[in-house]
């Protein structure tokens, strides 16, 4: 199959001009080449308007989360049972929830919880998936066989079911949920890292490096990992969206963030509990969840387009359907 039908011809032109525009004679060391490639990818990403809008939105969310203690008009946990389920007013810009808590403040502090959750789960997934994947691809043999089997087994389960099971084992709570989601997201990273390690291991320059006495760790760290970094970056961006869905789902079920802490998922749960009294205060957390997930998806698409040709084949790997299909052919958000 050919590449996506919507691949914009402009993308290729961009690439060509970018190559032509780089001054000749500066491409002596491989490090410089890699840096130039990254610069080109950045330029291409910057031209992708929807990706930049998504990135801006995400940066605003990060900013709002970091500045939550300053921005929040009220204590997110302060209850005011007389003024519960109020509509928007000058005192409470987004109204109050079923305990009379300020929705805007909870939304801001919820962003904090969500972003910390994303970070935690990404780190866990990366630490669990990437080194093992590099190892399996590089060493091969029984190590690879065992690790790949476990990874396949984990991939064969619906992610949320697996996360639920792990939360069932560890008990509810945000950190446990993030460990669970980290474990769920590790296998795709494992596969990408393993694939990259396998494809590079037989290259002559690795052989040369080995002959020169490089340690296996140096080869993995300096030569194999950089080759895998583009697809891993794209995969991590997509994973962030998955994490937000999972955090929201599990917190909504009462298994994640525990009250009175605010997260977007627990806010939806509070809204659901009060759905007959005041149907509309679910709007704010729902909109934030959807926009944030959408932004990560759009940014991921943009990154993949920008990094195309640098070993990015995330969807195929991610889905593991034998390269018969190509995910997400659409090039736009």
């Amino acid at each position: 199959m050919t590449q996506g039908p919507l691949t914009e011809p402009a993308a290729d032109v961009d690439g060509a001009t970018a190559v032509a525009a780089t001054p000749p004679g500066s491409s002596t060391s491989p490090g410089a080449g890699r840096r130039r490639g990254a610069g080109r990818a950045m330029r291409q990403l910057r031209r992708n308007r929807s990706a930049m809008v998504a990135l801006t939105f995400l940066l605003l969310v990060v900013l709002a989360a970091v500045l939550a203690p300053l921005l929040a008009p009220a204590d997110p946990a302060a209850q005011d049972l007389i003024n519960q389920l109020q509509g928007p007013s000058s005192e409470h810009l987004l109204g109050t929830d079923n305990f009379g808590r300020d929705v805007l403040s909870r939304l801001l502090f919820g962003a904090q919880v969500t972003l910390v959750a994303v970070l935690q789960a990404l780190v866990i997934a990366a630490v669990a998936g990437i080194p093992l994947g590099l190892l399996a691809g590089f060493v091969g043999g029984p190590v690879d066989a065992v690790l790949s089997r476990v990874s396949d087994a984990l991939l064969s389960l619906p992610p949320l079911i697996l996360a639920l099971a792990i939360v069932g084992i560890l008990g509810p709570g945000l950190t446990n949920v993030m460990i669970a989601i980290g474990v769920v997201l590790a296998p795709p990273l494992f596969r990408l890292a393993r694939g990259a390690a396998q494809s590079v291991t037989s290259e002559t320059y690795i052989e040369a490096c080995r002959a020169m006495g490089c340690s296996p760790w140096r080869i993995l760290w300096r030569h194999v990992l950089p080759n895998a970094s583009s697809p891993l970056l794209v995969q991590l961006t997509f994973s962030a969206g998955v994490i937000i869905i999972a955090e929201a789902s599990l917190s909504f079920l009462g298994l994640g963030v525990q009250p009175p802490d605010a997260s977007w998922g627990t806010m939806l749960r509070d809204a659901f509990d009060a759905i007959y009294e005041s149907p509309y205060f679910m709007v704010a957390p729902a909109v934030m969840i959807v926009l944030t997930i959408l932004s990560f998806a759009v940014l991921g698409d943009g990154l993949r387009d920008a990094l195309e040709g640098r070993g990015v084949s995330v969807p195929r790997e991610k889905r593991g359907v034998r390269g018969l299909m190509r995910m997400a052919t659409t090039r736009r958000g």
Binding site: S249, V290, L294, T330, R332
Partner: peptide, 8 residues
């Protein structure tokens, strides 16, 4: 479709 895919 893109928007729907982002909604849990």
């Amino acid at each position: 479709a893109s928007v729907l895919m982002a909604i849990p």
